[in-house]
Write a protein that binds this DNA or RNA. Structure first.
Lengths: 163, 163
DNA sequence: CCTAATTATCTTGATATCAAGATAACGGTC
DNA sequence: GACCGTTATCTTGATATCAAGATAATTAGG
């Protein structure tokens, strides 16, 4: 055990209190949760310089990744970002207010809407993404490439039972 | 690459659009974020049978782990659960309303307060924790013990630059 | 001691989120 | 072609969260 982290303390405490349970899952999932929380804070900070909120990035990045004319339906955005429809309506409203996206009628489905990235939105998300990748690279700096790949592979396998 | 996950699609899309960037960090951190999100949903479901919300568990579990007389200050609870003081005040209020915790004056510091788990609270958190560990065990079932330990170790190393 | 800086908790006001339901259009079936 | 279950999006109402500030007690310095 090279270093000790907060989860080692947490598991030790649980072990003291509940030695009847197998706490192996906690070793993995507590770290996932805590890392995600800390990562959120780090991302927020990386985006602050670019005047972009985390939720804004989530939506803009999905559109940017789509490529082509940077259009996706709200439904698709919902699935990509794992939020509810009410939340997405609200997000698209506010991003429209900032001039980062615009709503278009879907030519193939009159119920449907397409959300399109504007040039301003594209510029914003590209800058933010570069800052994000740079910040994350620093956080990974301690981990050799081999370990990093192994970690990514193990995380991929961990994701399968969820889908 | 045994199976393909959502993040493989995401990275492929980013690679198509931004081949100028090294996307190795995304392979790791996107999976962390997405796993945490999916894990939240799974936990919520595991707790639903026990009529416990996720935020309630976070607070009750911190008190339960403390052992002894199950008392912690709000400040300590804030640090354990990574929320703001306003949030914690509100959480303790609501848990008090449910009879799961009670507030006591700190005998050593007249500014201070101690939050103590009640017997009802202890019963609730113990049941919820058992359900949580069982649910997480199922999610880990595919991963051999050796891989699980390796994953926990890599995650521990990933946590160090955050603290 | 007395003051100033710090620490601990709570309050306030604004806001993002969710769950549930409303509205409207699609697509298959009879 | 009319019906009906499904799908896509938006609306509404309630609520949990955060940031900033208020209050009160402790601690450290002079």
């Amino acid at each position: 055990m090279p270093v000790r982290d907060e989860v080692d303390d947490l598991v030790e405490a649980w072990t003291r209190e509940r030695s009847d349970l197998d706490l192996a899952p906690v070793e993995v999932f507590s770290r996932i949760s805590r890392l995600a929380r800390l990562l959120d804070l780090a991302r927020r900070k990386a985006f602050a310089d670019h005047d972009i909120e985390l939720w804004e990035f989530d939506v803009l990045a999905a559109l940017r990744r789509a490529g082509g004319d940077y259009e996706l339906s709200p439904g698709r955005l919902i699935r990509e970002t794992l939020v509810t429809s009410g939340t997405m309506t609200n997000r698209v409203d506010r991003l429209t207010g900032r001039g980062f996206v615009e709503r278009l009628p879907d030519p193939n489905d009159r119920r449907g809407v397409l959300v399109r990235l504007t040039p301003d939105g594209r510029e914003a998300v590209d800058g933010a993404f570069e800052a994000l990748v740079a910040a994350e690279r620093d956080l990974l700096a301690e981990l050799p490439a081999k370990d990093r790949r192994q970690l990514a592979g193990l995380l991929r396998r961990l994701m399968t039972p969820f889908s």
